[in-house]
Design a protein around this nucleic acid. Structure first.
Lengths: 103, 103
DNA sequence: CTGACGTGCAATAATCTGGTTGCACTTAAT
DNA sequence: ATTAAGTGCAACCAGATTATTGCACGTCAG
């Protein structure tokens, strides 16, 4: 799911969806310098990552952000950051203890 | 820099470094099911992303996490999450306004 | 000095990725 | 009924990634 966020084109797609609320692959391909099919594939990746959903309306498919998925991802990122902070604090303590041992 | 975090092996390397404080590519290759050279390449990527540094000690090179780089990355992720929250709130307001227009 | 250990570099191979194009199929609109 | 718009599927391609192996070079220990 980090891989979904790692691609710049996909991030731009998320931006566009956030700005417009919803859009079709064809519409989006007009906003980005890639073909519709490329957009479709990116949307499939974002869908698999739970960041986006598409629902059929007649002959078109409207994609929109999926708040739940976004929240899950951001929560995950936050906890990752927190874990790192804890580990770094532990390392810092260890380093300080080593310093005390030396002096 | 998200691409650096997107690979599972690299995340495991960060975990190992966080747990041990520092380690050489050779040592790390004993912990993961890949060759030393693969580890070296991953460490190069992490280094380029500013998440890790290696310093030579005699004939070996010790790699350790780079707190500054980690903090930068986590800050970036946090602001990304915040941006998304703002956008989603805007979408929600827009949706509610649309509801009001309909009724 | 000699051997063992750790590293660096290069070539190679396999797989993934992002992208394209062409064509068939469904759903409006005239 | 025809035509146009939007989608879905498949083949294909070039380049990036991940990983391997082999070998040369520096460094420490006996």
């Amino acid at each position: 799911m980090l891989v979904a966020l790692a691609d710049p084109t996909r991030r731009r797609l998320l931006d566009l969806l956030a700005a417009q609320g919803a859009a079709t692959a064809t519409t989006l391909s007009g906003r980005l310098p890639v073909s519709r099919q490329a957009i479709v594939k990116h949307l499939a990746v974002l869908d698999a990552a739970g960041l986006v959903v598409g629902s059929r309306v007649g002959r078109e498919v409207r994609y929109s952000l999926r708040p739940a998925g976004l929240n899950t991802t951001t929560r995950w990122m936050s906890s990752l950051a927190a874990d790192w902070d804890l580990r770094l604090a532990a390392i810092k303590r260890a380093a300080e203890a080593a310093d005390r041992d030396l002096t």
